[in-house]
Simulated scan of single mutants.
Amino acid sequence: MSKVKYYYDQETLSYRKIEVKKGKKIRNFLVFLLAAFLFGMIGLFTLLNTGLVNTPKELSTTRELKQYELQFEILNKKMEQMEKVLGNIEERDNNIYRLYFEASPIPEEQRKAGFGGVNRYQTLEGFDNSKIIKNTTRRLEILQKQLVVQSKSLDEITKLAENKEKLLATIPAIQPVNNKDLKRMASGYGWRTDPFTKARKMHWGMDFSASRGTPVYATGDGVVKRSDNRAAGYGNHIRIEHGFGYESLYAHLSKYNVRKGQKVKRGDLIGYVGSTGRSEAPHLHYEVFKDGQRINPLNFYYGSLTPAEYEELLHVASQENQSLD
């Protein structure tokens, strides 16, 4: 119920009812509507600019941005996997393939050099996700450059390999114990726990756990340089000189099947697994040398293992466990 307002009339000395003209009512109503409209617009504008309320377009854009972020994360994970695979190829290229053919290793800074000078990613700046976009782009470009460098290196290796059949025959390229005769690959090349002192020390070869008397085979063509037990810790052992700076060593044998000065071919039976010398259990300790320096034998099994077998051997050999010698 609307309120009735009065005023005091001094002439009649009485209260009289205030009559509001129709035109004034309409004007007041329009002023109210205009004020309400202006207040509503100001409130809506304030809400839209404070981020408390998002328009359907903004919600859609936000969802798209989150989807793009997810795609960038997936792409970065894929690139991380590619970088690991390429890193393994580069390591083999420097430490195996280029050594095989007496080519100088490619320096690390050349393989993984970035892009200096002007800001290559200036056009990617100024966005909410500029950091992840720039990082992904940079990683992708470096990966592309590494692939180009590796491709050129393999082209060079292909040319060097044309007249290297003799070299390939001498490289120790097979596993010295057949997989069917193995109990397990006990320890790989690297830092391991000494079975006797329990101290952490460098293990310069690979230990293949097998029954006493298991055949041991020459891993490449060559000449038997030693076949004796006069080296500390190795017990009965054989050392084969393959040429081109390569040598292989087979330790803790139970007995020999070759003598010093004898020529052998890859795959020839040279001795039998034992536990002589500084050994905790029957196994073959196997080492590879290049120019007098010990190198990881794991890189030389391309001639006797399937990809699946090599992958399993790689996994086991990378574990830092206790060696058998």
Rank of each mutant, 00 (worst) to 15 (best):
F45P: 00
M202H: 11
V20S: 10
S211M: 09
T306F: 06
T12H: 03
T55W: 00
N236Y: 02
L314M: 14
G190F: 06
Y121D: 06
E125N: 07
G222T: 01
P195R: 02
E320Y: 03
G188I: 00
T55P: 01
R239C: 08
L86V: 12
H315R: 15
H242F: 08
T12W: 01
F29N: 15
K112H: 14
L182D: 00
T306S: 15
E141Y: 07
L59G: 13
R120L: 15
L182Q: 01
N163T: 11
S323F: 04
Y256M: 12
L160P: 01
G114Y: 07
F208G: 00
L48I: 03
H315L: 11
P172N: 07
I133R: 11
R138K: 08
K225C: 08
I106R: 14
V4A: 13
H242E: 06
K17M: 10
G245N: 02
M185L: 12
Q293V: 14
K183Q: 05
L30G: 02
G51L: 02
S2M: 12
V20T: 14
P307S: 14
S211I: 04
K166A: 12
E165S: 13
L99R: 15
L99E: 14
G245R: 03
I295A: 10
K57L: 13
V149Q: 06
L33W: 13
H283N: 04
L140C: 04
F29E: 11
L269D: 08
F101R: 05
H285R: 07
S304A: 07
L30D: 00
E90A: 15
